[in-house]
Write a protein that binds this DNA or RNA. Structure first.
Length: 424
RNA sequence: GGAGAGGUGGGUGAGUGGCUGAAACCAGCUCCCUGCUAAGGAGCCAUACGCAUUGCGCGUAUCGAGGGUUCGAAUCCCUCCCUCUCCGCCA
């Protein structure tokens, strides 16, 4: 949620910045609602005040033995007006709130404009895409030949866009997650965190998935209205919701390994082959909760931590800064990490690192007590994949493939694979 | 799932209809006293929103959540949520 005060006072500016995200801000509607809200609120509070005043005096008048009938009549009249005003105010505040919570976060001034991923800006590259003196296979062919990946069985068990993994491939998948967690806790100072995989609507509202993107989520049936998490960002970031943190508790750095569930509505026909786009996938997620003046720096650090995973795995990648049109709802700034996939002969997203600034904190009421002002103020939140485990598996399989269809185990994963050198 | 007890400010904890947005204590902050330390004294110390703004401010809402009774609710009634204890069941 944007700061309502700011939306009110800098309306032009807000509209201009949101346009970078290809979002049209309906200024006329907003200003009209805002003006009515003001009138109704003043009227409601005045009536409340009058009624309170009279009610308080009734006790005294009664104690003095005087007639309270005239006061009762006045209060009765006020009550009528008050409840009408209250009702109108409540309705308006609801629509105003819906309007405001539907506004995406402001992109940073530095965010490049553009409509799609084609307009993202390459920031840097690392490593060199490998060359092969044989015809490369993609992870599907490699996995099926090694009897480690089975998409047909998964479809029979569940639906399309699911996978079954077995044997050393399944272990490699697990090894990747373990390696990532160990790296982030051991070298980058993250706190390992385990969270619920089902969350309620408030939690999803807090990080910005609701109310606008419900169709992307899996909602469970049953007594409790719960949703499968689309990313650990949701529960992990919401750990600080509804709270006021002391300055010395910051920054918080959390690492969280969970499955993620996405309906992938609207992506029919995209990446239908293989593990790139699944309804269920594992991800190691990094979350930072920081003081506002440290969030720019935190985004650089978080991105570097995600990059370190690819570097240790010796996987070539590039970093791109997302353009306005490709950014998420809650982000002010986003770096994507794209890993080289020989099977597709291109870079594909494997991590997305975003600074949400105070946008999520406002929605979830996460604050810190600023020693400078003594006041509770919204925190800044950041999140990034460190990394998507399924896609990391794809990248390792394709980049480490050998002419005979076997897969070399990356050096850093050998200890997690019981010393195995090669999957064949 | 069954029985019982509870949910009040950063913490502990008073408060069964108006003088309570909330006693007291602890923690924290400011000042005074003091050679240092320790002790002592005075004051401040919830959040959100609105109005006003030169300045002091004023108002509304909030005592788990929602609804109800009443001129008036932390306090009475209803529903729900959560926590604790015991029993049952269970990975």
């Amino acid at each position: 949620m944007l700061d309502p005060k700011r939306v009110r006072t800098q309306t032009e500016e807000i509209a201009r910045r949101l346009a970078v995200k290809n979002f049209t801000f309906d200024q006329a509607t907003f200003e009209e609602m805002e003006q009515r809200r003001r009138e109704l609120q003043v009227r409601t509070e005045t009536l409340q005040s009058e009624q309170n005043k009279r009610s308080r005096s009734i006790g005294k008048v009664k104690a003095a033995g005087e007639d309270i009938q005239p006061l009762l009549a006045e209060v009765d009249n006020l009550k009528q007006q008050r409840s009408e005003a209250e009702e109108a105010l409540r309705e308006l505040q609801e629509s105003l709130n819906a309007f405001l919570s539907g506004l995406p976060n402001l992109p940073d001034e530095s965010v490049p404009s553009g409509d799609s991923e084609d307009d993202n800006v390459e920031v840097r590259t690392w490593g060199t895409p490998p060359t092969f003196d044989f015809d490369v296979l993609d992870h599907v062919s490699l996995g099926e030949r090694l009897k480690g990946l089975d998409f047909e069985k998964a479809t029979r068990l569940a639906h399309s866009r699911f996978a079954v993994m077995q044997g050393p491939i399944a272990r490699l998948h697990r090894a990747l997650a373990q390696f990532m967690i160990d790296l982030h806790t051991g070298e980058h100072g993250y706190l390992e965190t385990y969270v619920p995989y089902l969350v309620n609507a408030d939690t999803l509202y807090g990080t910005g998935q609701l109310p606008k993107f419900e169709e992307d989520l899996f909602k469970i049936s049953g007594d409790q209205p719960l949703y499968l998490i689309p990313t650990a960002e949701v529960p992990a970031t919401n750990l600080v919701s509804q709270s006021i943190l002391d300055a010395d508790e910051l920054p918080l750095r959390l690492v969280c390994h969970t499955p993620c569930f996405r309906s992938e509505a609207g992506s029919y026909g995209r990446d239908t082959r293989g593990m790139i786009r699944q309804h269920q996938f594992d991800k190691v997620e990094l979350v930072h909760i920081v003081r506002p003046d440290e969030s720019e720096q935190a985004l650089e650090e978080l991105t570097a931590h995600a990059e370190k995973v690819l570097q240790r795995l010796d996987l070539p990648y590039r970093v791109v800064e997302l353009c306005g049109g490709d950014m998420g709802f809650s982000a002010a700034r986003t770096y994507d990490l794209e890993v080289w996939l020989p099977g597709q002969n291109k870079y594909r997203e494997i991590s997305s690192c975003s600074n949400a600034r105070d946008f999520q904190a406002r929605r979830m009421h996460a604050r810190w007590r600023n020693p400078g002002t003594g006041k509770p103020e919204p925190l800044h939140t950041l999140n990034g994949s460190g990394l998507a485990v399924g896609r990391a598996l794809v990248a390792v399989m394709e980049n480490y493939q050998q002419a005979d269809g076997s897969i070399r185990v990356p050096e850093v994963l050998k200890s997690y694979m019981g010393g195995l050198e090669r999957i064949q």
